[in-house]
């Protein structure tokens, strides 16, 4: 491997060493290289600057760049770990690592908590959950009476907010997902186990000696 020297890396600011990234994540070096193929295709879809901006992530998720979406924005904010307004390759790999089937459950629980704690207060509050429910209804063009939304919120907080203080803290979230494991289903991407066959072209671009894997 490594027969062809890639010339594209210079266009990717913040492109981190695949060996380094593999050592920090559940991915092998080959898998990090395969993820680079995915990263390249997403990061060049609107502006070919080697970074993923919000519009490019929207486009990759919805195949439609015009569709503003609360949840896609939230995912973007969490992937943009350095809060630069763009996702570089290192951010991308480290965030996707949480979604790896072998990633620690604890990381998945913490990530999902942050995802739903829209205002970053350290609690998932009722008005945040209501905001997300309304966003979901708009997205799916479903209509529910406000009364029904309030009933869903009552039921949710009855079950999750065990100390009944009106907000869900991290330990309550921990217990709630333990009782409702299906809530973490979105936190695992089976594709990540098989990434080298999904994006096989990395083989031709690899700069890494197989021996390093």
């Amino acid at each position: 491997m490594g027969c062809f020297q890639s010339t594209s890396r210079k266009q990717f600011p913040g492109h981190e060493d695949p060996i380094q990234l593999a050592s920090q994540t559940a991915f092998s070096v080959s898998e990090v290289e395969a993820l680079f193929e995915l990263f390249k295709s997403i990061s060049s879809s609107v502006i070919d600057d080697g970074l993923i901006n919000k519009e490019e992530l929207q486009l990759a998720l919805f195949k439609n760049r015009k569709k503003e979406n609360l949840f896609a924005n939230r995912i973007f904010d969490l992937f943009d770990a350095k809060q630069k307004g763009v996702i570089d390759f290192g951010d991308f790999v480290r965030a996707l690592n949480v979604f790896h089937p072998n990633a620690p459950q604890e990381d998945k629980i913490n990530f999902s908590f942050k995802l739903y704690d829209l205002d970053g207060t350290g609690y998932i509050e009722r008005q945040e959950v209501k905001q997300m429910l309304i966003a979901l209804l708009c997205e799916s063009e479903m209509k529910l009476a406000d009364e029904t939304i309030e009933l869903i919120l009552d039921k949710t907080f009855m079950e999750a907010d065990t100390n009944q203080d009106g907000k869900i803290d991290k330990s309550e979230w921990h217990n709630f997902v333990a009782q409702n494991p299906s809530l973490l289903r979105i936190m695992t991407l089976p594709y990540l186990r098989d990434i080298t066959t999904t994006f096989p072209s990395f083989v031709f671009n690899s700069e890494v000696d197989e021996i390093a894997t």
């Binding site: 990759a60 998720l61 919805f62 195949k63 529910l144």
Partner: peptide, 27 residues
Amino acid sequence: SAAPVTMNAFELISTSRGLNLSSLFEK
């Protein structure tokens, strides 16, 4: 419809396509 009340809010929210990152892998 009374059906959604039997679900908790997070089960509903987690059906959003914006949270479904598997779309990233669809070419």
